[in-house]
Structures are given as structure tokens and as C-alpha cells.
């Protein structure tokens, strides 16, 4: 069984973090989350990290792997060489709580403000006649609220008031399928210097998204919609 070398960012707020190397034996079919969990179980019980579902559904295990935002649970070890080092650091642009753990509540509170429909129509069956007794099929939104896009976004680094890619994408989803929601409020939320206009199209959100959300395109659609609304108001409301 191959031995993998992991370099984990360790430490607690108040002291400067350090990188520590661990060696862990696991088959190449295992995932990074298995390696980190095994280090916690067998080598260092003080290691802090977030995880829950282990299949990219809960969004808890986002970290930076060799600098890039990934979910540990769907990062296979076979991507790496046992001779190399896998460096794991916490997400950026979140308050750091220690080791690989960050506080995601600022993002969650922003998402809660949007209050978007968490359930969406299932595209597989949206246009298919369903047998009697089967209701319209629904499924969860693509966004798992993992925060990878916030960590990857360079604008988040400079503007802490920026709504961020996940939130803007959520607003766009809500506008696309409002189900009686208050669209005017959402447009106001997005039409803000720290909202849709703050994005500088670095495209890293879409590049790191593990769940097909494509926030960059969503922000583009949101802007188009805001422009149309403004034009309509400008033409219609002209005195």
C-alpha cells in the first residue's frame, strides 16, 4: 500500500500557523478526506477539520490543496504521487478557527438573506408527462454552499462587503425560478456596489466550483437582467 505525504496547516488563532508533515498509508483508490481522517484517528487527535457527507453533497470539507480550492471528499489520492507532498490549507476569506477549520457563518448568513428556493424542478422530468399519482419531481439546488468560490475569488480578498459568487448565483437562481418570491428585493440586493457590479470576472469561482453552479455565468445573467430593468425604468419612468 502506498504511503502519502501530507503537509497540513496547523495552529490556532493568536499564534502563527505552521506546516506539519504527516505520512499516511492508504490505497490509491482512497480520497484526501480519508487521509486526513486517518491522520486524526491514528496520529493526532487535536487536528481540526470539517467534514460530513464524504460525497460532495454537504459542502463541509472545502480546503486548499496545493493552493487550489477543492473538496477533500472528491479529491482522489491517485491524482498525486506518493513521492510528492500534498499541501492542505484552510479556505481563504473566512475567519480562521484553527488547523483546516474556518467559520462559514458569514457566508451562510448572506445566503440566508437571499432565502432562495432550495428545491428546484428536476430537469430530467420537467417536460415529461408523469403518471397519475406522481407529483412534480424536485431536487436540491446545485449549490452545496461549500465556500470554495469565495475562497478562490480575488475580489473577496479586497472587499469584505462583497456579496460573493455563491450568494449572487443564488440570487440569480431565485430570479430564474421565483415561485412567488420577492424578486424586487433580490434585484435591490444584487444592484449594489458590493453586489453584482463588484465582480471583476476573474472566473475562478466557476473554475473551482465542484457542483456545476457556474457562478460567473450566473453573475453575467444577473447583470444583464439588472441592465434591462434599469433601461425599462429609465425609458418608462422618464418625466
Amino acid at each position: 500500500m502506498p504511503t502519502w505525504q501530507l503537509r497540513l496547516l496547523r495552529g490556532r488563532p493568536g499564534s502563527s500557523p505552521r506546516l506539519e508533515t504527516y505520512r499516511v498509508e492508504l490505497p490509491a483508490e482512497a480520497y484526501l478526506i480519508d487521509a486526513v481522517e486517518k491522520i486524526w484517528a491514528e496520529q493526532d487527535r487535536s487536528l481540526l477539520f470539517r467534514h460530513a457527507c464524504h460525497h460532495a453533497s454537504c459542502g463541509a470539507c472545502g480546503v486548499r490543496v496545493n493552493g487550489r480550492e477543492r473538496l477533500m471528499c472528491i479529491t482522489p489520492l491517485r491524482e498525486f504521487s506518493p513521492d510528492g507532498v500534498i499541501q492542505v490549507e484552510p479556505l481563504r476569506h473566512f475567519p480562521w478557527l484553527g488547523d483546516l477549520l474556518v467559520d462559514v457563518s458569514p457566508m451562510m448568513r448572506r445566503m440566508a438573506e437571499v432565502g432562495f428556493a432550495i428545491i428546484r424542478r428536476d430537469e430530467l422530468t420537467a417536460d415529461r408527462p408523469l403518471p397519475e399519482g406522481i407529483e412534480q419531481i424536485t431536487r436540491f439546488e446545485d449549490c452545496i454552499e461549500c465556500g470554495l468560490c469565495l475562497s478562490a475569488c480575488p475580489v473577496m480578498a479586497a472587499d469584505e462587503a462583497y456579496l460573493g459568487p455563491a450568494t449572487l448565483a443564488a440570487i440569480e437562481r431565485m430570479l430564474a425560478e421565483p415561485r412567488g418570491g420577492d424578486t424586487a428585493r433580490l434585484l435591490t440586493l444584487a444592484d449594489d456596489p458590493h453586489g453584482a457590479w463588484r465582480c471583476h470576472s476573474a472566473m475562478e469561482c466557476t473554475a473551482v466550483c465542484p457542483s456545476n453552479v457556474d457562478p460567473a455565468s450566473a453573475i453575467g445573467r444577473l447583470r444583464r437582467r439588472l441592465i434591462v430593468e434599469k433601461l425599462r425604468r429609465w425609458i418608462g419612468g422618464g418625466r
Binding site: 464524504h54 453533497s57 463541509a60
Partner: peptide, 14 residues
């Protein structure tokens, strides 16, 4: 001791 649902509940079959 860990995150919410970091044991059996999280890694459920859903």
C-alpha cells in the same frame, strides 16, 4: 467532538 453530522449521520445513504 467534531462538526455537526461528522459521524454516521453525515455519511448516510441519504
Amino acid at each position: 467532538r467534531g462538526e455537526v453530522a461528522s459521524g454516521t449521520s453525515g455519511r448516510n445513504h441519504c
